[in-house]
Amino acid sequence: MSANTTTITPRAYLQAQSRWHPLEIAFWLATLLPFVLFPDYLSLASQIAITALFALSLDIILGYAGIVSLGHAAFFGIGAYTAGLISKFGWGDPLSGLVLATAAAGLVGFAVSFIISRFRHFTLIMITLGLGLLAFEAANRAHWLTGGSDGLQGMSIWPVLGIFKFDLYGYTAYAYSLAVLFFVFLGARRLINSPFGLALRGIRENWVRMPAIGADSRAHIRKAFTIAAAIAGLAGAVLAQTTENVSLESISFQRSADVLVMLVLGGAGRLYGGLVGAAIFMVARDQFSGIAPQYWYFWIGVLLVTVVMVLPNGILGGLSHIYARWRRK
């Protein structure tokens, strides 16, 4: 161990942190498999990619900066409704719809971040929970605009780039969701390996020390929260566009709770945790609800409790632990 770690220069060491691991390349190649192996499940694959994107956005604030949110679906919903309404009122171009929906969620996230950055721990959980419920009821009440519990109907999405029509089998939907997920992931990966990513980890590791090294933690948190909100909105927009409707469920507490469960299952603070967690959660839901449609959450509960007890850093945390031990041998 000492031979190869002490000779490496500090700069090379930090650069190596952000180098692509072969497993990462394998992971992204594997995301293409559904096109070949499970062509009947492309809609599910698309939902997984969207949920993974949503979980990735939560990972930036929860996994890296240690900011727990129980109301993250608010931004997902804002993105979904924005994309839905733009298309309903006559502008069906998907890409510009994504941009506008992302901006809307990011803007609301920026405003909310001024509250978020002032609080910690339990208070913060309650505030985000409250804001999430607020957003849900607002969407519910604004029936004239959002369709309330009936959902937003009448969307019409044009072909992507004017070429790729959203088909019944979900080819375009999955390709579209996966492409968005991949490009945002590249950005998130860069962010995590940047000085800003280091500062977020600093906030997570020691909130008290940050001001003592001259850091403005609140400014960092505002920035991270805004970015996370924007990405959550983007995920919501992709869901709205690929399914051509927005249900009230997209802004519900259930969605906030689910994404938290996925991130904890997969492993927070390791970028791929949300992606793996989303895949496991969505496939489990698909399978379990086939067996017992009423009680499928029972099994998610069992899975969550088991993982948290046995693998405190989630499934990826456990796997990387095994991998590290195996390499040391």
């Binding site: 500090p10 930090l14 940047s194 000085p195 990513g197 280091l198 500062a199 090294i213 920035k223």
Partner: peptide, 23 residues
């Protein structure tokens, strides 16, 4: 190394930059 790099980055006012790697 990461901790002290963070502190230096804060002093140099580059700790808010998220588009370039630390390396």
């Amino acid at each position: 190394l990461e901790a002290v790099t963070l502190a230096v980055a804060e002093r140099r006012r580059i700790a808010g930059k998220f588009w370039r790697g630390v390396g």
